[in-house]
Write a protein that binds this DNA or RNA. Structure first.
Length: 433
RNA sequence: CGGGGUGUAGCUCAGUAUGGUUAGAGUACUUGGUUUGGGACCAAGGGGCCGAAGGUUCGAGUCCUUUCACCCCGACCA
């Protein structure tokens, strides 16, 4: 893409109400634009990042034997009445009537819809297990949306649902999904923990959350320093009594590392995390009330034993920036970057610079490298600031050193500038990617 | 859903206590010129129903009433 033709409206100033790094930089760098409370439009750069994240998820889901579907966003209220969640969700369900006066709901999650899709189609234990997922906008009419796209009313979520004929098989799938989710976050370059969690309103017998470690996270985690153990503080404390919980919370907060891990003998410490994934063992929580049955080996009707696996795609985009930014702006990781390389023409009036830049640009494009060419008339300093704000992992600076046959590679993460012989630049870039 | 705050140019904000020509700045944008390695400089421009409705007044961005939107703290949710 040519920067001169790209729609990337960067600004020097952040929206006055932005407090979180991801909100500030995604706004300033021209990725997102607020439309109303908790509602955002994604501009081209954000759309590219979202697509990159989706691709990683799709690949890992395919590896794990899952199939993608797409359920309708508008869902009949009758399904929610069947499961009993119409009341449970309350005002977070956005309800409305169509022209025939039937009531519908904008989907906040799709357990009911998926069960409805599968029931009466999958009717035998021989057809199990299956695991279906979708990548779909969700809508929850939150009482108080906040933190930019971190907690919007509308958000993009990957939601998967598995159907089994035994608890053992659900356990197997649950573990497989945990591995797939870990792989996804690792590939995206995130530092994260899998923690024991509360099953909350979704219901079910067990659940784990995937937490991206970040100081701005809304969740408090107790994590072990020496093993992989981690728990959401809510479940770690395990106290149902609120007052007691407060007391323990305060004391845990004050400890100097004398809390012992229940898994090994390591020390526990508290940290903050952003929940980007949550996997549940549902059992028959939805299949029973929705009367979704299959016939077992004995010809007896049984409700499906289910699991559900959610991953916040748009939230991951924000979490990447929460974990990877500095005072200059975004720092995208390799797998998440909207473009891998940005070519900066320092002086657009210098024919030699333009010629080399154009050649390199066409060359990399033909090799399917995602490359941006900054061919605008701005000065060098402006282009550098812009590249730092947007957060391309690497920029090739083609500037005054070209007289000596030298160009430079700028590493966004370290901010180091490395001189390279002009004729070696393509090879060097391909090495880095 | 309780408590608090803010709405003036695309964006960030002055101006409102004490009503008074044609509503301002910075930035962004357009044009011309000078610049060209860290968000340049000079000059000339375009851009506003002062959130909306009603009221007080000779006169309202400013005072009064109503209403809408957005933000923050909390509760809730995840």
């Amino acid at each position: 893409m040519r920067r001169s033709r790209a729609f990337i409206p960067t600004t020097k100033e952040a929206p006055s109400d932005a407090t979180l790094a991801s909100h500030i930089y995604l706004s300033r760098a021209g990725f997102i634009s607020q439309v109303a409370s908790g509602l955002y439009s994604y501009m081209p750069m954000a759309k590219k990042v979202i697509t990159k994240i989706e691709n990683v998820i799709n690949q890992e889901m395919a590896n794990a034997g899952c199939e993608e579907v797409e359920l309708s966003f508008v869902t009949p209220i009758t399904l929610w009445e069947e499961s009993g969640r119409s009341e449970k969700f309350g005002k977070e369900l956005l309800r409305f009537h169509d022209r025939k006066d039937n009531m519908f709901v904008l989907g906040p999650t799709h357990e009911e819809m998926m069960v409805d899709l599968v029931r009466n189609r999958v009717t035998s234990y021989k057809q199990l297990p299956i695991n279906l997922y979708q990548m779909k906008i969700k809508f929850r009419d939150e009482a108080r949306p906040r933190f930019g796209i971190m907690r919007g009313r509308e958000f993009l979520m990957k939601d998967g649902y598995s159907f089994h004929s035994s608890v053992e098989d659900l356990d197997r799938e649950f573990d497989a999904m945990e591995r797939a989710y870990k792989k996804i976050l690792a590939r995206l370059g995130l530092d994260f923990r899998v923690v024991e969690a509360d099953s909350g309103a979704i219901g079910g017998s067990g659940s784990k959350e995937l937490m991206v470690i970040a100081g701005s996270g809304e969740d408090t985690l107790a994590v072990c320093d020496s093993c992989e153990y981690g728990a959401n503080i809510e479940i770690f404390l395990g106290a149902s009594d609120e007052a007691q919980k407060d007391i323990i919370f305060t004391s845990v907060k004050d400890i100097k590392g004398d809390e012992i891990c229940p898994n090994c003998d390591g020390k526990l410490s508290l940290t903050k995390g952003i929940e980007v994934g949550h996997i549940f063992k549902l059992g028959t929580t939805y299949s029973a009330p929705l009367k979704a049955h299959y016939l077992d080996e004995n010809g007896k009707a049984q409700p499906f034993i289910m699991g559900t696996y959610g991953m916040g795609v748009s939230r991951i985009m924000a979490a990447i920036i929460e974990q990877n930014h500095d005072e200059s702006g975004c720092i995208w990781t390799k797998e998440s970057a909207p473009y891998s390389v940005n070519i900066i023409i320092s002086n657009i009036k210098d024919e030699a610079q333009v010629k080399l830049a154009e050649e390199l640009y066409e060359n990399l494009k033909s090799l399917n490298v995602e490359v941006m060419l900054d061919d605008t008339k701005e000065r060098f300093g402006f282009k550098m600031k812009d590249a730092e704000l947007i957060g391309f992992p690497y920029s090739v600076i083609i500037g005054k050193e070209l007289e000596n046959g030298v160009v430079q590679i700028f590493d966004r993460k370290t901010k180091e500038i490395t001189p390279i012989n002009a004729q070696d630049i393509k090879t060097k870039i391909l090495e880095l990617l």
